Computed example of a mutant assay.
Amino acid sequence: MSQAEKLRVGVIGGGYIGTTVGRQFNTEPRSTVTALADVSADTRQAAGETLYVGDGSQYEDYREMLDAESLDAVLVGTPHTLHHEMVTAALDRNLHAFCDKPLTTDLDEARDLAERAEASEQVLMVGYQRHLNPAFKTARQRWQGEGETLSPDYLSAEITQDWISRFEDTWRTDPDLSGGGNLYDTGSHLIDAVLWTTGLVPEEVSAEMVFADDEGRVDQRAILTVEFADGAHGTIAVHSDAPCVREHVHVWDEEGAVYLEGRQWEERELERIDADSTTVIPFIDRSKQRNKAEAFVDCIESGEEPPATARDALAVTALTEAAYEAARSGERVSVELD
């Protein structure tokens, strides 16, 4: 494939996501990063070197990049509260968009982007990587596969991390940029994993939170009790002052349970617990696992639905926003998906 035939990607935000996923686009034979925008000159320079984008295609203002460069798609890897305006700007210019999670931190904005994406010929994919993870995909077949499936009854999901100390004095602990605390950061992946893997629809939530700031906006511990449609229930917990990363997702149904476990950012492991307490470790085929860039380009070429859609992301934002309201009010809050 010639350079001219490759999908031309503009990166908005030259930090961790911009460079990490940007490198995937450069490694993917069908795409290449051709332009970069970031408000920081130092970040632009460093990201430009990493992504092989010269000074002439580096911009302080992302809008200038969108108007000046011949692009096919954008990668949005900026702080959370900026996502809506940047994705909207891309879609308005008929560009495909890959947006890091969460899609937005505002429910109306999430609805807006879900509706735009569903009415558009452009691909909008959200960076929830559990949708590409073979362990989670295998578990999902138990409740949302073809043919006869089971119905989850209850679940517990927890992630621990040294989040507060690691991100102190960064944009991730600035709620004007992050939208909140860890529940909107690493916790967003956990909420998405629960909803997408099980197919459960959250209806109400109560929550207890410990906040790291006097204004009560940056959660460092969040424990959610969620009631789902059809009577299922469960807890989702995010702890930000632990020394290391551990993730546990346990989902029970009438035939037993599925356990998804992992440490740090390594591959997650899958166990099946049968009703007689027998533990089975099913084979997980990781040989065909796609990365985010590969999946995004596949969707553009084939017209397939993105692994993580704007509608998926809307459900995460709806539950997250309801949880913050519940924690601050002390009341059980309805999750407004429509």
Rank of each mutant, 00 (worst) to 15 (best):
E204G: 04
E204S: 13
V205R: 02
S206F: 02
A207N: 09
E208T: 04
E208G: 00
M209D: 00
M209W: 02
V210I: 06
V210C: 05
V210Q: 08
F211Y: 15
F211E: 05
F211H: 09
A212T: 09
D213T: 06
D214F: 09
D214I: 08
D214Y: 10
E215A: 14
E215T: 11
E215S: 11
G216W: 07
G216M: 04
R217H: 12
R217S: 10
V218L: 04
V218I: 14
D219P: 03
D219F: 02
R221E: 08
A222N: 03
A222K: 03
A222G: 09
I223Y: 10
L224H: 07
T225D: 14
T225C: 07
T225M: 06
V226M: 06
E227L: 05
E227K: 08
F228Y: 09
F228T: 01
A229L: 08
A229D: 11
A229H: 07
D230A: 00
G231Y: 15
G231K: 13
G231E: 10
A232S: 01
H233D: 09
H233Y: 15
H233E: 11
H233G: 10
G234A: 00
G234T: 01
G234Q: 00
T235E: 10
T235F: 08
T235I: 11
T235W: 04
I236A: 12
I236M: 15
A237P: 01
V238H: 03
H239C: 02
H239I: 05
H239S: 03
S240A: 14
D241H: 12
A242D: 14
P243W: 14
P243I: 10
P243F: 13
P243Q: 08
C244N: 13
V245F: 07
R246G: 11
E247R: 12
H248A: 02
V249N: 01
H250I: 11
H250L: 13
W252P: 00
D253H: 11
E254G: 05
E255C: 11
G256P: 00
G256T: 01
A257C: 02
A257D: 00
V258R: 02
L260R: 00
L260I: 05
L260D: 01
L260F: 03
E261Y: 06
E261K: 03
E261F: 06
G262F: 09
G262L: 05
R263V: 15
R263Y: 15
R263Q: 15
R263A: 15
Q264E: 15
Q264S: 13
Q264M: 14
W265M: 01
W265L: 04
W265C: 00
E266P: 08
E266C: 12
E267L: 13
E267K: 10
E267W: 14
R268Q: 05
E269I: 05
E269T: 13
L270V: 13
L270E: 03
E271S: 07
E271C: 06
R272W: 05
R272S: 02
I273Q: 08
I273T: 02
D274G: 08
D274A: 12
A275E: 14
A275R: 12
A275I: 06
D276Q: 00
S277R: 12
T278N: 03
T279G: 05
T279R: 14
V280E: 10
V280T: 06
V280K: 02
I281D: 09
